[in-house]
Nucleic acid binder design. Structure first.
Lengths: 215, 215
DNA sequence: ATGCTTATTCAACAGTTGTTGAAACATACT
DNA sequence: AGTATGTTTCAACAACTGTTGAATAAGCAT
């Protein structure tokens, strides 16, 4: 068995290449040969390590999902500790949801940028959206829904879930970084500036949830 | 020239088929042969009417975009008239933006359902998102941005545009109808119930914009 | 009918697709 | 040294891809 962590294995090189290409062109827009070429390996190697193309896509997607879930749950746990014995505020919960993903040094890494593009693609894909997002993210997100329900005891379930839908839609569209905001605002706002968007989105989304908390 | 409106022409049949397939599988996931088969015509006919695959995709997308823009601008004009001589409220503007698309009898038509799936795909696609959404929708959306700026004179441009980003992300994710909300809510909320989501989203998004209006 | 224009099909092209079985290479253990 | 095990490449497969030019059908004015 070749060493798995000191050097970047070819297996990881395939995942990195797949990530970048899937993010830009989607599942069907990418060929195994393009992935292999980018990774500097033979076509057959992807098949050896990951099986069908389908499974390579899912493993690429899953790899960083687990990291993001950890970051988020840690942030939620931290804000729970700080607020104890009271329940954390809506704003703290939204912040714990967005901050780990929209701020920090990892935003500079091309790998993370690519992965965010994949999330945008998957989340609004009819084929992948329902299954894959649910499998990869919903367990962690359940904790956030619970926290929101605690913070907003008056809000109905329907309002909570559609509120989360707005949050998820806004975040994943930000991940796409299509440059559309740049066009629309005539350059005043930059799609790729996730940290700038973070400040704005926390205010906006928090207000939305606080509103559904009072009848 | 064959008649263009009394009977469904084969040209329209191709657009309908393309719409349904592009919505489900994206641009690269659909072959011209699949479109032709669904439309009941030969492969070459798509090329004869629309040129390259690229152009067929864009024309399919554009066809209903113009209709949606008309509906929206009429709704905005109507709420402007009702509010005159005052400026329309934030809520009225958001309502004019969402109601024409999220309510009404056209939601029952499979053609519109398919088209909404296409919008979801295009909006968060790195390849298409920036260019095609901008070209098809941004002229009309400029009027909504202007109206929001009037209604929220204290809000900064950055906050307005990121607010619009949240609105757009939430709407297009709703269009995807991936069924994820159904999983997450254990069946309490239905992804495909756009009219139910409309009521919730108007409240949520309106609160977000009203918040950025006061410092 | 005769012509003329538009619509539609047919047949085929050159290139690409995911996948696979066998062969070659590398590494570690004995 | 040999040998066993895990990696990687090579070569090829059958099927499918977008696109095109020529052939056929349909529609319509004359």
């Amino acid at each position: 068995m070749a060493n798995a962590d000191t050097k970047v294995s070819r297996k990881d090189a395939i995942l990195d290449a797949a990530e970048a290409l899937f993010a830009e062109h989607g599942y069907d827009g990418v060929t195994l040969r393009a992935i292999a070429a980018r990774a500097g390996v033979d076509v057959a190697l992807a098949n050896y390590h990951f099986g069908r193309k389908h499974e390579l896509f899912e493993q690429t997607f899953q790899r960083r999902a687990e990291i993001l879930n950890t970051w988020r749950l840690e942030a939620l746990e931290a804000c729970r500790r700080e607020a104890a014995p009271a329940a954390p505020s809506v704003r703290d919960i939204i912040d714990a949801y967005l901050r780990p993903l929209m701020t920090g040094p990892h935003l500079k890494e091309p790998g993370w940028r690519n992965y965010y593009g994949m999330v945008a693609y998957v989340n609004s894909s009819v084929t992948w959206g329902g299954q894959l997002m649910t499998r990869s993210y919903d367990p962690a997100i359940g904790s956030f829904i619970d926290a929101l329900k605690e913070a907003l005891p008056e809000a109905g379930d329907e309002a909570i879930y559609w509120g989360y839908h707005c949050l998820s839609g806004a975040l994943t569209l930000a991940f796409a970084q299509t440059g559309r905001l740049d066009h629309l605002s005539h350059g005043k706002v930059c799609s790729t500036d996730l940290e700038g968007g973070y400040l704005q989105m926390v205010d906006f989304i928090t207000a939305g949830f606080e509103r559904i908390g009072r009848p």
